[in-house]
């Protein structure tokens, strides 16, 4: 599955982002998911309202990286996490 252009990711029930003193993790029913800094920054913008495109645009303003590259990274992360059942993706309302 590939995230569509206006896909809006959100955490499924029982999944939470948790900031620890030295890192950010995802709490899932099966345990803990360690995130690297880029994954943590991306998931910190997942609020059930922002689309993947909007998340990439926001990250592009924080990092000196073209939005098109970030969009590919965001899509890949969302796809991988949704494949594991930790994120769900809905379509933006027209």
């Amino acid at each position: 599955m590939s995230s569509s252009r206006d896909a809006i990711p959100s955490f499924v029930d029982g999944v939470r982002l948790r900031r620890l003193p030295d890192r950010t993790v995802l709490l899932v029913p099966e345990g803990v998911v360690n995130l690297n800094a880029s994954a943590a920054a991306t998931l910190g913008l997942v609020d059930g309202a922002r689309s993947c495109s909007a998340i990439a645009q926001e990250l592009s303003s924080r990092y000196d990286v073209p939005a098109v590259q970030l969009r590919a990274d965001v899509d890949e992360l969302v796809d991988r996490l949704s494949d594991r059942g930790w994120l769900c993706v809905s379509k933006a309302k027209p």
Partner: peptide, 10 residues
């Protein structure tokens, strides 16, 4: 710096 987002399930 930005790097490819990655994760590890524990």
């Amino acid at each position: 710096a930005w790097e490819r987002p990655d994760f590890e399930h524990v």
